[in-house]
Design a protein around this nucleic acid. Structure first.
Length: 275
DNA sequence: GACCAGGTGTCCG
DNA sequence: CGGACACCTGGT
């Protein structure tokens, strides 16, 4: 067990932020994550600290980086223009969100699946792929890892249709072919500058700017990406008719995007759930 | 049953 | 180049 006292680490908010599809609430204060070939149980405690069921070595070697603990999110929020009431509120509200360092391949496929789907539907598709094609985890054989590109390249489109991927079946199939064949070498892409990485991702069928931005932000940790989906678009129209000051926040645009997204989605939901 | 959901590719003006 | 429209599927 490891206890992380960092107050800027809120697993409930991260789980609700829509960046990760295999982080699920299992109890009032408990979450389960499958990533990095492992299963991790995470408990948020009243004190604000986080308890994880892993060894100190595993935390230091794997999860500290996965949860991006070396980035100073408080500093990013402190840089928010105090005259920007909306962004200040969104930042305060979303404090504790971090941008996870997820696997690029899993991120790419997950966001290809995400188009025209809500979060529960995306999660269902991802879990179906894992259940059918993923390898059992060494430490938890009843759970399965996200399937490799090599494995998914063997799966035919019909099979994806049976997994209820819909018209995204062909996209997943094509992406798996490209990665398994080496035509799209994700580890090589990781060292490319933003423009070249974006261009490579856009060459995958079914990947447009939004999904490429999400893959860059969540799978390649390019914190300067600012994915614009319909929710963000609404905010930009409503709150920033003169344009969002992206250049002021160069290098941390993606973090602000997550604060805004979480702020909007959570408020929307609580509004809807009122009687 | 119509309509929409964290988009993309295509076709048309 | 900008604007419509179809696309699978599951949920209201």
């Amino acid at each position: 067990m490891v206890v992380v006292p960092d107050r800027d680490f809120d697993i409930a908010k991260i789980a609700a932020s829509g960046q990760c599809f295999r982080l699920n609430q299992t109890d009032e204060n408990t979450f389960r994550l499958v990533a990095q070939g492992n299963e991790l149980s995470i408990e948020s405690r009243p004190s604000g600290s986080v308890r994880l069921n892993c060894s100190r070595e595993e935390w230091d070697g794997v999860w500290r980086s996965y949860f991006d603990m070396e980035t100073d999110y408080a500093a990013i929020r402190e840089a928010i223009d105090p005259n920007d009431a909306y962004l200040s509120a969104a930042g305060a509200y979303g404090a504790g969100i971090r941008i996870l360092r997820q696997d690029p391949w899993e991120t790419l496929i997950s966001f290809i699946l995400s188009q025209r789907k809500n979060i529960p539907a995306i999660k269902r598709c991802v879990e179906t792929l894992c259940a059918r094609f993923g390898e059992p985890l060494a430490g938890a054989p009843d759970r399965r890892a996200f399937p490799s590109a090599h494995r998914l390249a063997e799966v035919d489109v019909d099979c994806y249709n049976k997994c209820a991927l819909g018209y995204r079946s062909g996209y997943v199939h094509a992406a798996a072919q490209m990665v398994a064949s080496g035509e799209l070498d994700l580890s090589r892409l990781a060292v490319l500058p933003d423009g070249a990485l974006m261009e490579a991702l856009l060459s995958v069928p079914g990947v447009g700017k939004k999904i490429a931005d999400c893959t860059m932000l969540f799978g390649f940790h390019r914190l300067n990406r600012f994915p614009v989906d319909v929710w963000i678009e609404r905010v930009l129209t409503r709150e920033y008719p003169a344009g969002f000051p992206l250049s002021r926040y160069a290098g941390s645009e993606g973090v602000l995007q997550q604060y805004i997204f979480y702020y909007e989605r959570t408020r929307q939901r609580s509004k809807k759930e009122l009687p």
